[in-house]
């Protein structure tokens, strides 16, 4: 996700990531229906609905489908590699006792770090939303790996939360475009005291 130049590819990658996450949830469910249900909701919401919404958003906004970043592709790939390294290095100390899938904890940490990297380095508002979604997936993976499934209501709440956040972000991006005529957050510099 760090190295692609096209937003379409980014969204497709995100959808793929969610499908894989859902599969992981099914795998860990061991036939318990709350986890299966959570996985289904995840698949439906994040694997299908959010990517479709994002495609629709891009279409409506009429902006170029190109990722604009402060960092060049090789540099962001390099930084991404470093961050994954950091995640793997420190991840082992975050494993709780009785974790279901200790191997996934460093991966989840790396996901969070990568999500933050893309939020901090990308210029367009849409790409920042993508970064946030990546981060959110990392948090979900962490919860999945560390515990034997969070309570169903919390899982559903988190999934809905992410969805609501994306919808809100979409609305906000529309407002940003109508007010400023662009969605380049690098050009907005008035948020200060």
């Amino acid at each position: 996700m760090v190295g692609r130049k096209s937003l379409d590819a980014l969204i497709r990658l995100y959808a793929l990531q969610n499908v894989l996450l859902a599969l992981l949830a099914f795998g860990l469910a061991q036939g318990e229906w709350p986890l299966v249900l959570a996985g289904l909701v995840l698949l439906l919401l994040k694997g299908v609905l959010i990517p479709r919404y994002l495609f629709w958003l891009l279409e409506r906004l009429g902006v170029s489908h190109e990722v604009e970043s402060y960092l060049s592709i090789p540099l962001s790939l390099l930084l991404g590699g470093v961050l994954v390294g950091i995640g793997l290095r420190v991840g082992s100390s975050f494993v709780l006792e009785g974790a279901q899938l200790p191997e996934a904890v460093p991966v989840a940490l790396s996901l969070i770090l990568l999500g933050m990297l893309s939020m901090a380095s990308r210029k367009k508002a849409v790409t920042q939303v993508m970064g946030f979604l990546g981060l959110e997936n990392g948090v979900f993976l962490l919860a999945l790996a560390e515990t034997h499934g969070l309570p169903l209501f919390i899982e559903l709440g988190v999934a809905l939360d992410a969805f609501a956040a994306v919808v809100l972000a979409g609305v906000l991006i529309f407002r940003i475009r109508t007010t400023f005529g662009h969605i380049d957050t690098a050009r907005m510099r008035d948020l200060k005291g």
């Binding site: 402060y70 933050m116 901090a120 380095s121 210029k123 690098a186 510099r189 948020l191």
Partner: peptide
């Protein structure tokens, strides 16, 4: 507090 969103995000990062 320069006003740049990216700087704020970078600081959090």
């Amino acid at each position: 507090q320069s006003g740049s969103l990216h700087l704020y995000l970078l600081l959090q990062f």
